[in-house]
């Protein structure tokens, strides 16, 4: 029946791979598709939060911070409930990280606030004695790339069907129409902040990187 396979090395190799990985496939694939679905009532990140995520990636926060709480008592005591696969459904890419020089950040929004992040980003050792985290002063000066973040939201909506509302769509007019929502969201966060550079930028309608980053941090719950 499979005699012809023996004469075709390529298909033979492919068939062997399927046979060998069969048990793995039937155990892993259904589980993956099941657990990888977004949790019920989970919302995708807002555009401001995406901009914050991009700042997070740009400044390579994941080199020192993980975003994955493992189901061990020592971890859940310190960071809160363990992470579920579905929570990363809208993360592209996920930012689990594999090195914890600093603490895990997956539920940081539950136990830190805007003004804490502000003071901490300016001078970490002042807030956490002995911390070796460097200061991220440039985030108070640089402006967040909110247009790219909006483009990213449009892309993931079109390509992966991430459930954004009708306000997220292609085109400059759509972006201009959406921008006030984003600025409003940023203002809400900046109202808890004291740094004069942030206040000045917000007055001009700009969004400093730190505001986007804090929006992202607060959304990690």
């Amino acid at each position: 029946m499979f005699h012809w396979l023996e004469k075709n090395p390529f298909f033979f190799a492919a068939a062997i791979s399927i046979v060998i990985s069969f048990a793995g496939l039937i155990e892993i694939v259904p589980n993956f598709t099941q657990a990888g679905r977004p949790l019920i009532d989970m919302k995708p990140r807002t555009v401001l939060e995406i901009a914050g995520k991009n700042v997070y990636m740009k400044d390579n926060c994941m080199a020192c911070h993980s975003q994955m709480i493992r189901p061990f008592k020592s971890e859940t005591d310190r960071y809160g409930a363990y992470s579920l696969s579905g929570e990363y459904a809208y993360d592209r890419p996920f930012l689990w990280g594999s090195k914890r020089t600093g603490p895990d950040l997956h539920r940081i929004g539950n136990y830190r606030t805007t003004d804490w992040h502000e003071a901490h980003m300016l001078n970490p050792p002042l807030i956490v004695p002995g911390s070796i985290m460097p200061a991220y002063d440039h985030q108070f000066v640089n402006l967040a790339d909110i247009e790219t973040a909006y483009a990213e939201a449009v892309t993931v909506k079109n390509v992966f069907h991430t459930p954004y509302g009708p306000e997220v769509r292609r085109g400059r007019e759509a972006w201009e129409a959406y921008k006030p929502t984003l600025i409003e969201e940023a203002r809400k966060i900046a109202s808890d902040m004291k740094d004069p550079r942030v206040i000045e930028a917000m007055k001009k309608g700009d969004v400093p990187e730190v505001v986007a980053l804090i929006a992202y941090m607060n959304s990690l719950k």
Binding site: D77, N110, Y111, T113
Partner: peptide, 10 residues
């Protein structure tokens, strides 16, 4: 002073 988050989960 500022905002302190809830610690009910921890």
């Amino acid at each position: 002073i500022g905002e302190m988050p809830a610690f009910n989960t921890l």
